[in-house]
Amino acid sequence: MTLTSAPPAQPRPKRRPGDRIFAGTATSAGILILLVLAGVAVFLVTEAWPALTAPAADLPDGKSLGSYVAPLVFGTLLAAVIALIVATPLAVAIALFITYYAPRRLAAGLGYVVDLLAAIPSVVYGFWGIAALAPSLVPFYGWAERNLGFIPLFAGPASTTGKTMLTAGLVLAVMILPIISAISREVFSQAPALHREAALALGATRWEMIKMAVLPYGKSGIIGGAMLGLGRALGETLAVALVLSASGGITFNLISSSNPSTIAANIALQFPESSGLTVNVLIASGLALFLITLAVNMLARWVVTRRADFSGAN
């Protein structure tokens, strides 16, 4: 019965010209993205190179590149970590509120209102920070210096303008709140109804149901969301540039008016007035920021996709 041993593979199907052109265009668009990202890295390195190789004496202030960038990296991390610590629990609570506590008919609308927080431009957050938040925190800073001064974080002297590291961290917290809560909301609402109903059927209260069936399921989603928020906070520029009074070096004192700046804010403030090697130094600091956020974001994606693999098994 067997007549021929059929060829092992199909001959490539003939493609019509329309298909070839269209597929080619779409593919080139994708490849363009590869090139752009490679471009970002290459051009940043090229422009940062003079700063990386120049002797310390030629650099601004005659300091080595490391000692110029170090306080900036410290400031960047400190502000972002404050934001993360404040925003994560709040964001999780808000996500729970919208998915399981808010009256059903309001939930969607409230979710939209929280999303509006994400839509507000960062320069406006900066305005709000100096005009509303910072002044209203001044009494608190005074109180903290007097009563909590023994903790290094609140050593003082308390700022009289409120433009402190803590204020910057709080503004950033408000900005990343919607990011973390959006991702948490998504994983919470995907918690399997089967498990939730099983918990309720056992006589669990709402909170016990959430502890049993929602939070375990959403854990890596929360972590991933928090990391994405962290990435955003690390790179945030204008809000920090406006709200932080930056004149100091590395310190953990959160309420004084001499703080280290952040990389992004420093670039935004210095760049327009810079020339020569200073530009290269600023670009080198930008390169450092790029690498930091890259690492954080890749870690975040990894955490989030690990969850996807896990939930696929369900």
Partner: peptide
Amino acid sequence: ITFLVDVMTGIPSIVVGLFAFALFAL
């Protein structure tokens, strides 16, 4: 490409500005 699009969403906007500057400055 999927991975790099993810990475791109996370690049700080100021760094992107520096990229465009570096590109044209060259």
